[in-house]
Design a protein around this nucleic acid. Sequence first.
DNA 1: GTTGACCTTTGAGTTTACTCAAAGGTTTAT
DNA 2: ATAAACCTTTGAGTAAACTCAAAGGTCAAC
Lengths: 137, 137
Amino acid sequence: MKIGELAKRLDISTDTLRYYEKHGLLSFSERNESGYRIYSPKHEKQMQFILRAKTVGFSLKEIQELLAIKVEKQQHSCGEVKQLTLQKRQIVRDKIAELQRFEKSLSLLADACCGGPELATGCSILTTLEAADDIVI
Amino acid sequence: MKIGELAKRLDISTDTLRYYEKHGLLSFSERNESGYRIYSPKHEKQMQFILRAKTVGFSLKEIQELLAIKVEKQQHSCGEVKQLTLQKRQIVRDKIAELQRFEKSLSLLADACCGGPELATGCSILTTLEAADDIVI
DNA sequence: GTTGACCTTTGAGTTTACTCAAAGGTTTAT
DNA sequence: ATAAACCTTTGAGTAAACTCAAAGGTCAAC
């Protein structure tokens, strides 16, 4: 698959794909006779991983570190790899906990709201919710 | 509380606080006689919300939209506010789902790893894991 | 065989989110 | 009363992550 097709499948630009390759996120692809990049499903999977990591707030540098776990395991001891993995997992767990707080706040707001055609100002439960000072939304 | 103290409590710079105010994220604070910004615990809560939202990958623009739910409820119908809230909650739920996939992948890696002093290359379970093509880490 | 849709590289431009510097006013400690 | 440590504004500078433009090569279709 050429760069245009992969870009379309991932809904990103070809520039972004070349940018990620240049900055060491996406592994180098094969080239055909005329120098075109030829991508495999493995590259697509890798890109999906990168894009998913981005949506949950990892920087490209952090994503590189996540991807590097795989590489490092060839050079480091099992113990070191395990420690790095657990450390990254903790960051992921912390993020999940944050999001669950958001989910709870938004659920409270949604549940409190009658959903009718009246102006939200008049919704007394919402006003009550606003008074609860552990909810900031 | 003056800007320096709030910045210290939040572990960010005073510049960032002024930047957020200027860009409509943090509500305006009171000023004392000499023009210094004076912040309340409410401002601190709002900032904590903003910072939490940032760690889970919301852009400042998206955070503004989250904060705007509160404002909009004075101008829109309960139904509109409810719809916006549910829409934002869905984004949060999607992010949680992504992170849970990461958590699972990292847990599999960690569990598979013996954690001993041997080179990770020799860890056969890791090699097996690498072959599983639905896990990209 | 040439038009249009691809692909290549290099290098410059843009957006987001800060971050710093300058020039000056205020407050606190000695 | 005079440093040091705060605060103010304005405006410029920076890093990350793209995004675009230029100049040119490749390839399928008419």
